[in-house]
Design a protein around this nucleic acid. Structure first.
Lengths: 165, 165
DNA sequence: GATTTTAATTTGACTATCAAACTTTTCGTC
DNA sequence: GACGAAAAGTTTGATAGTCAAATTAAAATC
């Protein structure tokens, strides 16, 4: 197996495992009435100032219509509170209830634990290289794709590789 | 920001970006009639021997019921072929059509491109360390979670951290 | 004050998903 | 070989998540 294949398979596997593990860890007995997706909405709302529907929808990369439904459910289950903003009555500001804040802490703890495990397995130099490599990758994604609006370096990669190689 | 926070934010961002970029890159003009999920099913089927429904479902971590629907759609759109196996008539073997193989190549190319970009940014030693770190992480996930059935190191992390710290 | 824009919700449609019931086929055993 | 258990897939019924488009209400603009 080439280096490239190894790297690819590792990334694919880590990605899949992480998704699966996160979802299993987050939905415990106490929070079994909400989904993984709900948990990420709770994370997006955060524990500071209340956030508007639009802001949360943007953070989650969904339409406000989609978010309205999700917040309805979280509201019914007692995780969030909706409040019309007095300064601009079009705006709805959402914040976490006590129960919502417990779920938030639960999620945060999962991430802390995961990072701790990653660091435990690596020495200082390895950790540094890992961070460096990840940062480079994140930058690349940003510059290649997210900066240009609608136009992407990835979106225009050559289609002829296969047949001309 | 601590090292831990940096690592966490990098991972979270990469995860989200990658999901988004992959989905945008895979669904091009030629393959606009199938979803990101369909593309991963096509990847799971592969270009070698036909695979059974059960095998594909396991690879995708979904029930066979779910897969039946997805394969129905891919079949209707001309990406896959279903064939009852003569040696055991219960078994259905699925393989890619020419169109399906083109989609497979398209997906594979995306991954190759991504890996190339990662490698371009790192020197040989850094690449080695990155692979080592990722392998360690993959092993950890496997041992901490996937090996024990139903029981997980993650699933039992202490709930008291917050209140006792 | 009329028009346009903005924030959120509602509606209608579609995909992905699961669990459970069902069909067909094979396997094991008597 | 017949009968019951097991296995592979499909069907069914229900739910969550999603979007685009229509709608409502409020604010901004002119």
């Amino acid at each position: 197996m080439t280096l490239e294949e190894t790297l690819n398979e590792l990334l694919v596997r880590l990605f899949k495992d992480l998704l699966e593990i996160e979802s299993k860890c987050l939905i415990t007995e106490e929070f079994k009435d909400i989904s993984n997706n709900d948990m990420h909405i709770i994370e997006a709302i955060g524990i500071n100032e209340p956030k508007t529907m639009s802001t949360i929808a943007k953070l989650m990369s969904v339409t406000t219509g989609t978010l309205t439904k999700a917040i309805d459910a979280l509201n019914d289950k007692g995780y969030v509170i909706r409040k019309r903003w007095t300064k601009d009555k079009r705006v709805v500001r959402v914040s976490l209830t006590e129960k919502g804040r417990r779920a938030y802490a639960h999620h945060e703890r999962f991430h802390r634990q995961m990072i701790e495990h990653i660091k435990d397995g690596l020495n200082e130099q390895e950790t540094t290289v890992l961070i460096y490599a990840l940062a480079k990758l994140a930058d690349y994604f940003k510059s290649a794709y997210k900066d240009k609006d609608g136009e992407s370096a990835f979106a225009s990669w050559p289609e002829l590789d296969e047949s001309t190689g």
